[in-house]
Write a protein that binds this DNA or RNA. Structure first.
Lengths: 253, 253
DNA sequence: TGGCATTTGTACGTATGTATG
DNA sequence: ACATACATACGTACAAATGCC
């Protein structure tokens, strides 16, 4: 995985078990080509009829595969124009959960401070989420988000070194305020899916000091696992912020 | 809306604006037939080929409409058997958010106590959500959920009287512990979609007393709007529970 | 402005596979 | 063994939006 020279023949060999439906194998094949960085966000896929010819399938079959890729948010269609690789915008999601607004009610964007970057042995938690072995090397990035001159959100971010060594070798200025664009720019890695788990707990003594909370205050802890287009885990992080500032909206059916 | 004798001819007149795609109008038509109670949860829809003949469309067209109804959770397919009206299970969702487990780690089901049922004028909030006018009559049901002999979840539930008068005229025993099945059984109303908004606030003095929390504790407040198969609002409720017990999981793409 | 090629969107129709009862 | 119903796959035709010349 990661950026590599794609073997053009690879693209025409279908991914997945041969008993899977054709449209499903086409889905997996295109998803893998995206995960491999063959196309970058904003790039156009070949036209549906071209893809159908390349893979030797009917237009309706490749169309069904593309439909599901659109449903899953990996690509988007533009009528009359083409089908394009999407760039999901997860990086600011956390910010939307927390209520920081100026007196006029506008959302305030936080500053981002990378506090440390180091290689540490993976804890059981981190290893399980990143599909590594306990004790394997992982990159740990500690970051604080500030609003109004005060740290409001504390983040511990864990990355597998194989794909993300560039995060250690660049300056914070080169990395910039948003991590997911940096993963894409510096490591050729695109985040396509995330899973999050939200819970409310007592604040730890360290966090209380940094967030300027009293020891009996509560924090919201958000654990996030980020995955690439093929569903392989890329990043695991845990973020903590003051519980009282939290708000979240859902639709279910 | 509500239960009514369906005019058989109605079913063959397509819903929606005539410039909408055919599959979309078929979606709306079937959704409306479900909202009208023409089929009950568990009932089978006519076979795809039958529906195609009835509406005079190609099999692929009705299939696309059914695909989207499945995506939206209104119906489910069973290969080789048929397509059936689904009964979404939202009523216990709230319970899944809160961590109440026995020593073995199993989920504990709460008892349900209906504390009061009355007609009140709609507040601005309630009116906006239920698409009524402020001051209009609404049914207000107050319910407490108990774990281990203690109220843990407080719920204020608001219903438009037009569809839900049966909730006032039946005994709590007839209503039973779960409201959505009661809406279906007593009022012919099926909840198909919900929107929820989660926030964390200080506990009100009344709630603190009922939940046995101290006045500086925090509660999670969950506001929920429930809708029928056609997307019309049916019920609005606000539930409060101890913040520390809260846990929630999400997938995004 | 208009025309034209390209590309997705909608709709039709058919054949065959596979699970269920 | 059989009929029924959904699942997959094929292929075609035309509509509608876009972008370029």
């Amino acid at each position: 995985m990661g950026i590599r020279e794609s073997n053009p023949q690879d693209a025409l060999v279908l991914e997945g078990d041969e008993h899977l439906p054709l449209y499903r194998r086409l889905y997996l094949t295109v998803a893998k080509r995206i995960a491999n960085g063959e196309w970058r966000p904003g790039d156009a896929l070949p036209a549906e009829l071209d893809l159908a010819k390349q893979y030797g399938v009917a237009p309706g079959t490749i169309r069904k595969a593309i439909d599901e890729l659109v449903d899953d948010g990996l690509i988007e269609r533009r009528h009359g124009s083409g089908t394009f690789i999407r760039r999901p915008n997860f990086d600011n999601m956390m910010v939307r959960f927390f209520l920081f607004r100026d007196p006029a009610g506008n959302m305030i964007m936080p500053e981002s401070h990378i506090v440390s970057r180091e290689i540490v042995p993976a804890s059981a938690d981190v290893a399980a989420n990143l599909k590594m072995r306990e004790g394997d090397d992982v990159i740990k990035v500690t970051r604080h988000r500030h609003w109004e001159g005060q740290a409001r959100l504390l983040e511990d971010i864990f990355l597998p070194p194989a794909r993300f060594s560039a995060i250690l070798s660049h300056t914070p200025e080169e990395i910039g305020p948003l991590l997911y664009p940096a993963y894409e720019r510096l490591c050729g890695q695109l985040v396509c899916f995330i899973e999050e788990e939200i819970s409310i707990t007592d604040v730890s003594p360290d966090d209380a000091g940094l967030l300027k909370l009293s020891s009996d205050d509560l924090v919201v802890a958000i654990e996030r696992l980020a995955k690439d287009a093929s569903g392989h885990p890329m990043e695991w992080r845990i973020s903590r912020g003051e519980a009282r500032r939290f708000r979240y909206k859902i639709n279910v059916s």
